[in-house]
């Protein structure tokens, strides 16, 4: 029975499935209908040239507006390789992972020697809350926020947090075994450019892409590491 269904399904996928589904559906063959509903196009193979068509379609379909120019459609190495691998459903080769991480490591800018990596956690909390910035609808001269709460749990007092990234609650407490300077540098770098550690991370490269300033990132490091920050209390 299952094999029969599978064969019917793949036959449906190959032929003009939808029209058939409608006809069969109206005869109330609920099983076959269920097969139709699971739907064919998910399996349509990629064809040569599909990836190339993307570039042409993108440049024909957007206009510059506000601060968002057409240069935003140009992909850098990480954007290009990560998109390609994800569209192909294949993991990146080790070479490419290393190329991306190396390139992004080199993009990190550290505060001048002697400047503490921890700024002001209260300001960090405001930056973590704010989702303003870099959209064509945003005023270009207003400092951008980090919108960390969009993706992370941070302070236990904030219930409105997203789950695209891991929870950062008790961040410093949970990393108490890590040497302090190392933890500070890791945290600063991790916010400045996550892809220096993890190629194709879904977290924005806040420092390297000019979303947040070094001082804003220092404030966020304080939010994550200061003993009196609500995150670690």
């Amino acid at each position: 029975m299952r094999r029969l269904l599978a064969r019917a399904l793949s036959a449906l996928q190959r032929t003009s499935a939808r029209a058939l589904c409608l006809v069969l559906g109206s005869v109330a063959l609920s099983l076959v209908l269920a097969a139709c509903v699971v739907g064919p196009p998910q399996t349509m193979p990629r064809e040569p040239g599909d990836a190339q068509r993307v570039r042409a379609a993108l440049s024909a379909s957007f206009v510059a507006r506000g601060q968002a120019g057409l240069d935003r459609l140009e992909q850098d190495l990480a954007q290009r390789l990560c998109s390609e691998a994800e569209a192909a459903g294949k993991p990146l080769s080790d070479d490419r992972v290393q190329a991306i991480e190396r390139e992004n490591q080199a993009l990190i800018r550290w505060p001048a020697a002697g400047t503490p990596l921890l700024g002001d956690w209260r300001s960090g909390e405001r930056i973590a809350q704010s989702g303003v910035g870099r959209q064509w609808s945003d005023a270009p001269d207003v400092p951008a926020g980090g919108n960390c709460y969009a993706c992370h749990q941070l302070s236990p007092d904030e219930f409105s947090y997203g789950t695209l990234g891991p929870s950062l609650l008790r961040y410093a407490v949970l990393r108490a075994q890590m040497p302090r300077t190392e933890l500070e540098r890791y945290t600063y770098g991790r916010i400045y450019n996550p892809q220096a550690w993890l190629a194709c991370s879904n977290m924005p490269r806040f420092g390297s892409h000019g979303i947040l300033t070094q001082d804003q990132i220092r404030d966020l490091v304080a939010l994550l590491l200061a003993p009196d920050s609500p995150i670690n209390r």
Partner: peptide, 24 residues
């Protein structure tokens, strides 16, 4: 069919200041 396939490709395209794609 080409439109659907182009849409699938576009769904994965990362770009902009935040590296976002629809898949993010």
């Amino acid at each position: 069919r080409a439109a659907w396939r182009l849409g699938r490709e576009l769904f994965f395209v990362r770009g902009g200041t935040h590296d976002f794609a629809c898949t993010t």
